[in-house]
Amino acid sequence: MVRQLIGLAFLSLGVGTAAEPVVSPLPDSQEAFFSDDGYRIDRYRSPTPAKAVGAETVSTEGMQALLEKEPALVVIDVINLEYRADRFLQTEPHRSLPSAVWLPNTGRGRLEDAWHDYLVQNALALARHNRNHPVAVLCKSDCWLSWNAVKRLSEAGFRNLYWYKDGVDGWANAGLPMQPIRPVKPRFHSEQSSDS
């Protein structure tokens, strides 16, 4: 799917000829970055596209306006954190937007079922089991983790999604208030642990 979309983009830019309506495959170097179902699986901290699947992209100013307009907005931070022996191994505070809920390890491209369920079940609970409830997802700027998490929530049926592409560093660079947050504890055991 991703290969086809990128191939179509190459065709629209004039790469290829009208007599060849063949979709160009991704170069081998790019192909390794995406799974067959379109998730980014490598080099999560690299330039991201302008849009995420199923979501409206918001800038820092847009996120501020959204928080004012939608006071019940669910804000999910997906920055990774190592999880071992049924606990997160947090050695320093993580600061995020004041209303954010931290659901680490849910933006990876290849995700175990337990972490997928952790994301979707927590998002549903935060949205009061209403898939139309507004939900914004973030990590850091130029970070594919939030892009993947938005795609995952969209595929789970959430229909009012926002992608805050600038992330916590964009918020901090704008001098906006932040607060330390703690990750939501998973309900599964360490045999389904996560590497950072």
Rank of each mutant, 00 (worst) to 15 (best):
K140C: 12
I76A: 00
D28N: 09
W163D: 01
N173W: 05
A125I: 08
D117E: 14
S35C: 11
Y44L: 08
V58H: 08
V78D: 04
L124M: 14
R108V: 10
S96P: 04
A72E: 14
E56L: 15
K140E: 12
F158M: 03
M63I: 07
A9T: 08
P177Y: 02
P134G: 05
N132H: 11
D142H: 13
W147Y: 14
S35V: 09
G170K: 02
R108F: 15
W163R: 02
L126Y: 05
A123D: 01
C143M: 01
E155T: 04
E112S: 12
S194E: 13
L8H: 07
R182G: 12
Q30L: 15
R84H: 11
C139M: 04
G167W: 00
A9Q: 10
Q192C: 12
D36W: 09
S96W: 02
K185W: 06
Y44W: 06
S46T: 09
Q192K: 12
T60S: 08
L153Y: 02
W163K: 01
A85M: 12
P47W: 02
D169M: 04
S29C: 13
D117G: 09
F188L: 09
N122R: 03
K185G: 06
E70A: 12
T91G: 15
D86C: 14
R159H: 12
D169C: 01
C139E: 03
G54C: 08
P71Q: 05
Q90F: 07
S29K: 08
H189Y: 12
V53S: 13
S190F: 14
Y39H: 11
V75N: 01
F88S: 10
Q30C: 13
V135H: 06
L5D: 10
K51C: 15
T60Y: 06
N148E: 02
A85E: 15
W171P: 00
V75G: 00
L97R: 00
V74H: 02
L138G: 06
T60I: 10
E155I: 05
V184K: 03
T106Y: 04
K151P: 00
S24R: 10
T17P: 03
H94E: 11
P177W: 05
R40L: 04
A174E: 07
C143S: 13
A52G: 09
R87E: 14
P47D: 05
L66D: 07
S35G: 14
H133M: 03
Q179A: 15
K140W: 10
C139V: 08
F188E: 02
V168T: 10
W115R: 01
V137Q: 03
E82G: 06
W171A: 01
S154M: 02
V15N: 08
Y162A: 03
P134I: 04
E70F: 01
D36M: 13
R182I: 09
T91K: 13
L119K: 00
D37L: 08
A114C: 13
P180E: 13
V22G: 11
L66Q: 07
L153A: 06
L103E: 01
L119D: 00
A174R: 10
L97A: 09
P177G: 03
R187T: 14
E20Y: 09
A136F: 05
T48N: 06
C139N: 06
P27D: 10
D77S: 03
R187K: 11
S99Y: 02
V101A: 03
Q179M: 12
E112G: 14
P177E: 03
D142Q: 12
D77G: 04
F158E: 01
L97V: 11
G157Q: 05
Y39I: 07
V23L: 15
Q30N: 09
I79A: 15
L81G: 07
E56M: 15
